[in-house]
Simulated scan of single mutants.
Amino acid sequence: MTFQRDNAAFEDWLRDQCDVVEDDLVYKHERMQKDAFTFLRATFFRWARRIEKLCPKLEDAPAVLSVGDLHIENYGTWRDAEGRLVWGINDFDEAAVIPYPFDLVRLATSARLAPKAQADNRVAAATILEGYREGLANPAPSLLDEQESWMRPFVVCSDEERRDFWDEVKDYPDAEPPAEVVSALKESLPEGFKIKRYASRRKGGGGLGRPRFVVIAKWNGGKIVREAKALVPSAWHWAHETRGKPRFLDLARKGFRAPDPHLALSDGDGYIIRRIAPDQRKIDLSNRSGPRLRLDLLWAQGFDLGAVHAAKRSAQEAIADDLPKRKDDWLYEAAKTAAEDVQEDFDEWKKVRLPL
């Protein structure tokens, strides 16, 4: 099936799962014309449909609860219950039980397609895999106040970024969330809050089209923000025509994590509720400079993925048994094949879409 048909079929399925924001889908279609990396971020549904055909030697690997839509910009910072600054994977919308290598392949593919990629592709794949092995064997959260303090200069929010954040919040358009969302957002706020307004928010790549609402409130002399984003089953289930429930919290809170205490699901599990703040954000790795820094971060990304996959002891043992059986260059070769397929889909999309 062509990408165009898969895209249309997936969007029809999405409309059955939530009240799609059609203008956001139009915006998503425009963003998908930017480059192959942005296109990859927006099209996990196509990846889920294609990856087993592209990499048949990996489909028999142990299937574990996986991130699914993993890429180099699906990492960021948050504060845990102790107020510590934590870095790691921070979006599990597409979590599903998937052969474990496919998370690694998608991460390496995204590094390969990043517009400002600097590291040699073979070295990048080897570095990700090295970090992954360490994270699988010795899983732990990445705490920026302790062992991972070297990251702080590259991920801590600058004064300019803080101003940009609040300017963006000011520009969020007013909205009237459904009653269940209003209730969930209010419940997420600390005692003594005063609601200033509700708004909608357009953010993300593959999640564009799902309703997002925010509440901006006043508390103890300053503004605080919470977001509610519609949660639907993983596109892995769409691609494989299976039934499945969202597994977001199963990865976000369990295992070797220092979880975000503000992260929750609304009653009925229809929306993800989270804190939005300048120091709680995704990291734009594709814009980082310096080959050595890039490799260090790729190693750390592999490490955190290993820690996520190690959350269940049986999964950790199955992967540890399977991984040594793979050829040395398996990740490099798989990412190369996957990247070429993404590029073909991107080229097709560019041909049939009007120019930006």
Rank of each mutant, 00 (worst) to 15 (best):
G76N: 07
P56M: 05
I72G: 09
F44C: 07
V86M: 15
T38K: 01
Y75M: 12
V86I: 15
R50M: 08
F44L: 11
F45K: 09
E73Q: 15
R79Q: 09
A48D: 00
V86G: 11
M32E: 09
E73R: 15
F39K: 08
Y75C: 08
L65K: 00
C55Y: 08
N90E: 09
W78H: 12
S66M: 10
I89P: 00
W47R: 04
D80V: 02
G68D: 05
P56T: 07
M32N: 02
A61R: 00
F39H: 13
A42L: 01
F45C: 08
N90F: 11
W47Q: 12
S66F: 02
C55V: 06
A42T: 13
K57F: 14
P62A: 09
L65W: 04
R46C: 01
R31T: 04
D60I: 10
T38R: 01
D35A: 08
E52H: 14
K53C: 06
L65R: 00
V86E: 15
F37H: 07
L40Q: 13
L54F: 02
K57C: 12
L85S: 15
R84M: 06
D93Q: 13
N90I: 09
W87G: 07
D60K: 14
W47K: 02
L58H: 00
M32R: 01
K34Y: 10
R31I: 08
